Amino acid sequence: MDFFKVTSLEEAKKTLQKQFIEIFSKKEIVPLGESFGRYSASKIVSKDSVPSFNKSTVDGYAVKAESTYGASESIPSMLTLKGEAEMGKENKYTINSDETVYVPTGGMIPNGANAVVMIEYSEVLGEEIFLNTSVSHGENIIYKGEDFEKETVLLESGKRIKPQNIGSFAAGGITEVEVRVNPSFYIISTGDEVKDLGSELRPGEIRDINSYTLEALIKECNCQLMGRVLVGDDLELLKEEIKKGIENSDILILSGGSSVGSKDYTCRAIKELGGEILIHGLSIKPGKPTIIGGIHGKLVIGLPGHPVSALMVFKALLGEIINTDRGIPHRMILQKDIHSTPGRTTYQPVIIEENFAVPLHGKSGVISLLNRAFGYTIIPSDKEGFNSGDTIDVWPL
């Protein structure tokens, strides 16, 4: 018998973003140096043009390009040295076709110049400069705004800020950045059989895998973990910990207790605390018995107890909302067929063998499955799988 009225993954994500918009839309302004690794909450726009003046890319002599045409070692162009540019200062010189100004790398180009001859191709005789090569218009010059103009969009909203982004922000005169405030988490791992690390295991007991895995996933998303606790099969104790969780975090995750067994108290605890069950059952493999609920505006998610299911559902449901910029997947050729259940989005672990993607099959309770996996591919709910030889997207774990 199927106890679940399953909801599609896309509908579940829409429900989260609609019902808990305050959790996923928080913003703050931080100094530029603190923005690395955060997600932009709005378009980031340059305040200045870069560069803000025409500058030389070499040490050399700024000229009108046409005054060098035909120049060679045997017939050099002879120009009058009018002066030297100083780094960090405005170049107030203006040159004519028979004049030149020395400009260091990064220095400002004088008015009238449209090229720079490298110093290696010059000879100095008093106030006369002999140039033994010709240059074309614009050679060895970066023009004002050539890198980017004022009010250029440097980063779209929802993108992860990388070191190179910070460099462009600094160049564009940006000192503060509006970023998303990632949600905070609280983890409750449930079950009499689940024991913390360091415990001596008796027959029938297992070590707590999921809360440590989930903690790592939360940190990978640049989110803060406010607490992590083990609770046995005791409804009142569970309710007390849920209260603590929702008081101290935005999102409460319960590991285990999402199925329909007699001791699976998650749904009952949520309801008895004045909450609501929004979804019980996702059309996803693995992870079908997932629970999504809310208590006083806080999001509560009941994940399956199987480690593979818990990790995959977190990535599919929360990881893709929090990490809006996941990068580009690897495009790989599949070596073997992958079969999927129609109507369920399947997250299939894969390994890489000789540049081919190979499906990694195993039960959802086997954590070594993911330890061996390079990543996973996603089979949409409207497909029955992929065939050997297909090119597929593989997302690294």
Results as ranks from 00 to 15, higher is better:
Gly343Asn: 11
Arg331Phe: 02
Arg344Gly: 05
Ile338Tyr: 12
Ile328Leu: 06
Thr341Lys: 12
Leu318Trp: 01
Pro342Ala: 07
His339Asn: 06
Phe314Leu: 01
His330Arg: 08
His339Thr: 12
Asp325Asn: 15
Arg326Leu: 05
Leu317Phe: 02
Thr324Gln: 15
Ile328Pro: 01
Ile333Ala: 01
Lys336Phe: 14
Gln335Ser: 08
Asp325Arg: 14
Ile338Asp: 08
Gly319Val: 01
Ile322Tyr: 00
Gly319Cys: 00
Ala316His: 03
Asn323Tyr: 03
His330Gln: 09
Gly343Asp: 07
Lys336Tyr: 14
Arg344Glu: 08
Pro329His: 11
Ile321Gln: 07
Ala316Phe: 02
Phe314Gly: 04
Phe314Glu: 00
Asp337Met: 12
His330Lys: 09
Arg331Ala: 03
His339Arg: 15
Ser340Glu: 10
Met332Thr: 05
Ile333His: 00
Asp337His: 14
Leu318Ile: 05
Ile321Gly: 02
Met332Ser: 05
Ile333Val: 04
Ile321Glu: 04
Arg344Tyr: 15
His330Thr: 07
Thr341Asn: 10
His330Asp: 09
Leu334Ser: 11
Pro342Cys: 09
Arg331Ser: 00
Pro329Asp: 12
Arg344Val: 06
Ile338Phe: 11
Phe314Lys: 00
Ala316Cys: 05
Met332Ala: 05
Ile333Pro: 00
Arg344Lys: 12
His330Asn: 06
Arg331Gln: 00
Asp337Phe: 14
Arg326Gln: 07
Glu320Asp: 09
Thr324Tyr: 10
Asp337Ser: 14
Thr324Arg: 15
Gln335Thr: 06
Leu318Ser: 03
Met332Gly: 06
Met332Phe: 07
Gly327Arg: 09
His339Asp: 03
Met332Val: 09
Leu317Glu: 00
Lys315Val: 02
Arg344Trp: 13
Lys315Leu: 04
Glu320Gly: 06
Lys336Ala: 14
Ile321Phe: 05
Gly327Thr: 11
Phe314Met: 02
Asn323Gln: 09
Ile328Thr: 12
Asp325Glu: 13
Gly319Lys: 03
Thr324Val: 11
Lys315Tyr: 04
Leu317Tyr: 01
His339Trp: 07
Arg326His: 07
Ile321Ala: 04
Pro329Cys: 10
Ile322Glu: 03
Lys336Met: 13
Glu320Ala: 06
Arg344Gln: 08
Glu320Ser: 14
Lys315Cys: 02
Thr341Cys: 06
Ile322Leu: 00
Leu318Thr: 01
Ser340Phe: 10
Asp325Ile: 12
Arg344Ser: 10
Leu318Pro: 05
Thr324Glu: 15
Leu334Gln: 11
Leu318Arg: 01
Ile338Lys: 13
Lys336His: 14
Gly319Arg: 00
Asp325His: 14
Gly343Met: 11
Ile322Pro: 06
Pro329Ser: 09
Pro329Gly: 13
Ile338Cys: 08
His339Glu: 10
Gly327Ala: 11
Lys336Gln: 14
Ile338Arg: 10
Gly319Leu: 04
Ala316Ser: 13
Leu334Val: 07
Phe314His: 02
Ala316Asp: 04
Gly319Ala: 04
Pro342Ile: 09
Pro342Asn: 10
Pro329Lys: 13
Lys336Arg: 15
Phe314Arg: 00
Ile338Asn: 11
Asn323Ile: 09
Ile338Thr: 11
Lys315Gly: 03
Asp337Tyr: 12
Lys315Thr: 01
Arg331Ile: 03
Leu317Trp: 01
Thr324Trp: 11
Met332Tyr: 06
